[in-house]
Write a protein that binds this DNA or RNA. Structure first.
Lengths: 250, 250
DNA sequence: CTTAATAGCGTAGCTCATACGCAGTCAGGA
DNA sequence: TCCTGACTGCGTATGAGCTACGCTATTAAG
C-alpha cells in the first residue's frame, strides 16, 4: 500500500483508485455504473448482447461517453470479470478446512450460475481485482488450520480453483445452454449417441450408452448438476485430506 | 448406426456424413479444409484473427464460398472444437486405471496447449463430435478394470474432465498470455500484490504474499505449470483411488 | 476573467458476418 | 445430343460493432 502513483492504470481502475480530476465538468457516469449496466445486460441477454452501444443506451448515454471512463471494451470485460463475483462468504471461525472449502466452492458456484457469461470471458492475466483477491484470501483462510506451509496452501487452493473453474466452464455453460434450448439436449442426446457410437471403435462408451446412462433428460438441470459437482469435488477433497494427513505426520 | 437420414445436419457435418450431391460442379473446398485452415489461423494469430474473410483468403477462395460448406461461423467454431484434439492416446492394455488416466490427461493437456484458443470457444452443447467422443471413450476405457459400475465410471470421468478443463481454462490461458506478453506477469505480479493486499482485510493472502510465493517469474512457464498440474491432478486421483477402494470393499 | 482540463457526444472509418442473387458447371433424362 | 435442375463460387450490399477524432460545454485554478 505504498505510493499509488505508479499503479498501472488498469489496476487502479479495478481498485477505484484513480486520482479524481481537479477541473472540468462533473462526471455523470462512473466506471462502476458502466460495469453494473454491462453485467445487467449480460445477465439478461447474454454476453453477445453486451455492446458499447447497448450498455450506453441502458444508461441513457451516448456510446462514446463510455470511453471517458473505460479505455476499451476489453477493459470493460475485465471489470465485469472482477465484479461478477460478489464478496466471498464469511467462513465460520471454528470451521475445519474441509467444510470451509466446501462452503467456499458452493458460494463461488452459486455466483457463477447467476452470471453464466462468466465462463466465456477471456482470461488474459492473473487475478488482480479486489473481488478476485478477496475470494483467493477466503480460500487460503479456510486452510489456516491445516498445518500446511504457505506454498502448499497455494498449491491446494490453485488446484481447487482449477476444479471449480472447470465446473463453471463445463457444467454451468451446459446448464445455461440447456435452459435456453432444452430440446437440443435431454433424451435426444442419448439417442444420438446410440446411433453414432460404434461398439467396435468406442467399446467403453458404447457400454455406457447401452446401459442407458444418458437416457434421462434431467442431466443438465440444476439439482442434478449440483449433485454431480458435489461428488467430483468430494473426490478432490478426499485427496486433499490425504495430503494434509501425510504432511502432518512428518 | 441405424438410418442416417434423420441425423441433425450439424451432427452429420461433424461426422462427415452428409450425402454427396449428385449434380453440380465438383466442390473445390470441403468443410474439413475450412476447419483446418481456421485452426491454422487461430494457432498463428489467435481466435480473434479467425474471420470468414481471413480463412477464405488463406484458402485462396472468396469469403462467401465458405458458406456453401459451413452454415455459419458458429458452426465453424464447433467444427474447430472437435478437430482441435487429435486422436486420444492408445492406452497400454495392461495399464492400471491410474496410470491410464494420467496418460490421458497429459495427452489431453498437450493437445490443448497446442491450441490455446480452445479455452475461449463457447460451449453450447454436450460433446457429440467424433474426436470428443473418442476421448470420452478412451477415458472410460482406462477405468475398465476398476470394478466401478457404468454410471460410476461416468461420474469419475466427468469429474476428471472438469479438472482438466479447469486446467485448460486457467493455466493454459495464462501461459499463453504470459508467452505473448511476459512483462505484464512475473515479478511485477508479486510486487503489485504486495502493494494492493491489505494485511487487515486479506490476512491469509497477505501471509502468502509476504512469504514470497509469487516472487518467482517462472510461475507461468511450461515446466512450472506442468508440475503444478501434476500436483493438483494427483490429489484428485488420490480421491478416486479411495473411492474405488471403498467400492471394491462392498 | 481567463484558461486549461475534462465530460459528453456526433461523425466517420474500419472490420465483420451474412442475405441475396447471378453466372458458370456438371449429371442425368428426353 | 441437348436441356434442365441442382449445385458451386463469388460480388454486392446491409447492418452491426469498435473506436479515433474533434467539437462544444463545463468546471476549477490562477
Amino acid at each position: 500500500m505504498a505510493d499509488e502513483t505508479e499503479l498501472p492504470d488498469d489496476v487502479a481502475l479495478l481498485w477505484g483508485m484513480r486520482d479524481a480530476p481537479r477541473r472540468g465538468p462533473k462526471a455523470t457516469l462512473t466506471a462502476d455504473d458502466i460495469t453494473r449496466a454491462a453485467i445487467a445486460v449480460a445477465d439478461a441477454d447474454g454476453l453477445g448482447a453486451v455492446s458499447m452501444a447497448r450498455v450506453a443506451s441502458e444508461l441513457g448515454n451516448s456510446t462514446m461517453a463510455l470511453y471517458r471512463h473505460v479505455r476499451s471494451k476489453d477493459e470493460l470485460l475485465a471489470l465485469m470479470a472482477d465484479a461478477a463475483f460478489e464478496s466471498p462468504p464469511e467462513l465460520p471461525a471454528d470451521a475445519d478446512w474441509r467444510s470451509g472449502l466446501m462452503l467456499w466452492a458452493r458460494h463461488n458456484l452459486a455466483a457463477a450460475r447467476r452470471h453464466p457469461w462468466f465462463a466465456q470471458l477471456p482470461i488474459g492475466a492473473p487475478p488482480i481485482g479486489p473481488t478476485s483477491l478477496a475470494w483467493f484470501d477466503s480460500a487460503l483462510g479456510a486452510l489456516s488450520g491445516s498445518g500446511l506451509s504457505e506454498p502448499e496452501k497455494v498449491g491446494v487452493v490453485m488446484a481447487m480453483l482449477t476444479y471449480v473453474h472447470g465446473e463453471i466452464r463445463l457444467r454451468t455453460s451446459l446448464s445455461a445452454a440447456y435452459a435456453a434450448n432444452p430440446e437440443a439436449f435431454g433424451p435426444r442426446y442419448g439417442e444420438l449417441l446410440k446411433r453414432l457410437v460404434d461398439p467396435r471403435r468406442l467399446p467403453a462408451l458404447s457400454a455406457v450408452v447401452e446401459a442407458g446412462v444418458f437416457d434421462q433428460d434431467t442431466l443438465y438441470e440444476e439439482e442434478e448438476a449440483k449433485e454431480e459437482f458435489e461428488f467430483g469435488f468430494s473426490l478432490f477433497l478426499d485427496g486433499v485430506e490425504q495430503f494434509i494427513a501425510a504432511r502432518s505426520r512428518e
